[in-house]
Design a protein around this nucleic acid. Structure first.
Length: 469
RNA sequence: GCCCCCAUCGUCUAGUGGCCUAGGACACCACCCUUUCAAGGUGGCGGCACGGGUUCGAAUCCCGUUGGGGGUGCCA
């Protein structure tokens, strides 16, 4: 509740690739820091014995940078590592013990369960509260939850009341003396002078416990805010196991960071007016925690892609060409690298830009220009060549192609002339031609790429298709 | 089981007691445009979970029901 510079924090654990839900939480904290001229503190919560991998930390920093959270920005502070502060966590726990707010217990998990079962209760019953145990191997330190109620003031949800009798005496220090998340998290927030804790709703049940810790340690708790979780189509919290949640994966597919950020911000919140596609600056200006929804939001990949398509179309052509070149020269390319011709793609780019929702799609859109033998879709081939006009018109088109001036306009005219003669509309007529040239039944407009491909290669492909039958 | 949160078109949302005959976006459908496919344009389909209150008046306030979700670790 400090009146000084607000300090927000994002505290992920480095247990894998970066989760879109984490991205959203980070974004909230970041934009609040920007909006209120505060600080965004990155703290890596790496105290899990087994699941941490150092390389994930860099992954987090890279992913944050990708969505615009720049570690060089003056609003950014960190990263800090929770494991570094283990001594402070233990010290705080000892302080709690010394002050009578905590006690040691030697019961094993199995014994606790047995007792609970016998008593018809659930969870730990406070058995060791008054046994006066000292620290020792296998003794956990538990917090002595006081009687009464704990009221959490949550910026997004209002007041949430918990009856302390429903909260068991939770563990602060493990049997081996190491601190547990609840205390580590609180002590770190304290030492880092965090004023606002903005995190996902799954932490709401932890909050009364943490608030009791702040109180017992004699420090005013921060402002709490719990934003709703992101869910999948089954309305379950997004999970690494069954859902596509890796930010890195979306990046690789060619989701633009601006689109990802904009989309994420429309989950649980909406900018003023009838437009959802808005610049980040506007979001920073209009956003408030008080206005975020209270219910979980479905992370809809289709809509993300629609946003992305719109962002792609809004890009200046030159930027689009650069972005596409990155994909086209990456491992995603389906042709030998030396066959790629940037100038050929550049000529095609305007025709491609309105036709892709994610950048990865440009590969299939132009592959026939760079592959020596683009594979032919058999079903599409059979269908296109089953028309009785197919062979005669295509044959005639080939003949015309031998002598016409070689540019898109006259190529189009030549094809149209054949269509007029056979009374076949251009839409139908181009079917066999398209298959012959591209191997597919759909794609970008045909005549420009035919020009780009060149007379000889175009004729070769048409004749190959003709003799395929 | 227990604790907590939540509830507007299929989905994301606008809406903070009269401006609501409930607005927009994605998806879907139709038409226009058109060189296939897109893009663009126009139009359409479709919603306040239910039941009680409060009020002159309720999507908006209260209670209950139902339905969802989260948590319930010596994980974070």
């Amino acid at each position: 509740m400090s009146t000084a510079t607000p300090r927000y924090r994002f505290a992920p654990s480095p247990t894998g690739y970066f989760h879109v839900g984490g991205a959203r939480t980070a974004l909230y904290n970041w934009l609040l820091a920007l909006k209120n001229n505060g600080t965004f503190v990155l703290r890596i919560e790496d105290t899990d014995e087994s699941r941490n991998q150092p390389q994930w930390t860099q992954g987090i920093i890279d992913a944050l940078a990708w969505i615009g959270i720049d570690s060089n920005d003056p609003h950014f502070e960190g990263p800090y590592f929770q494991s570094t502060n283990a001594e402070a966590h233990v010290a705080a726990a000892h302080k709690l013990f010394a002050a009578g707010h905590a006690y040691y217990c030697d019961l094993t998990t199995e014994q606790i369960q047995e007792r609970a079962k016998a008593a018809g209760l659930n969870g730990y019953d406070g058995y060791s509260r008054d046994r006066g145990l000292a620290a020792g191997p296998g003794h956990v330190l538990r917090f002595k939850v006081p009687a009464g109620k704990t009221i959490v003031h949550d910026t997004v949800r209002g007041e949430v009341e918990f009856d302390n009798s429903t909260i068991e005496d939770f563990v602060l220090l493990r049997g081996n003396g190491t601190p547990v998340f609840l205390i580590a998290n609180v002590v770190d927030d304290m030492t880092m002078n965090i004023t606002h804790v903005v995190r996902a709703e799954e932490h709401l049940p932890n909050t009364p416990k943490q608030q009791m810790l702040w109180d017992a340690l004699g420090v005013t708790p921060p402002v709490w805010a719990h934003v709703p979780v992101l869910v999948n189509e089954q309305r379950k919290k997004l999970s690494k196991r069954r859902d596509k949640v890796a930010v890195e994966q979306y990046r690789e597919e060619g989701i633009l960071p601006e689109a990802m950020v904009n989309y994420l911000m429309t989950l649980g919140w909406a900018p003023i007016g009838d437009t959802e596609i808005v610049p980040w600056e506007q979001i920073v200006q209009e956003f408030s925690l008080e206005s975020v929804n209270h219910s979980p939001a479905f992370f809809d990949i289709k809509k993300l892609q629609a946003f992305n398509g719109e962002y792609i179309r809004k890009m200046p052509l030159a930027d689009f060409v650069v972005a596409a070149n990155n994909i086209l020269t990456s491992a995603a390319a389906t042709w030998p690298a030396e066959r790629y011709k940037p100038e050929v793609f550049a000529a095609m780019a305007p025709l491609v830009q309105t036709r892709v929702a994610v950048m990865a799609e440009v590969v299939d859109m132009v592959d026939f220009l760079f592959m020596a033998e683009p594979p032919i879709d058999d079903a599409a081939f059979t269908k296109a060549f089953s028309a009785d006009f197919a062979i005669p018109t295509l044959t005639q088109i080939a003949t015309a192609f031998e002598t016409i001036e070689w540019n898109a306009e006259s190529i189009k005219q030549a094809v149209e002339a054949v269509g007029t003669e056979h009374e076949v509309k251009l839409g139908k007529l181009q079917g066999p031609l398209r298959i012959a040239i591209t191997g597919r039944s759909v794609g970008p407009p045909l005549f420009e790429p035919i020009e780009l491909l060149g007379r000889d290669e175009s004729l070769r492909r048409i004749r190959a298709a003709l003799s395929r039958k």
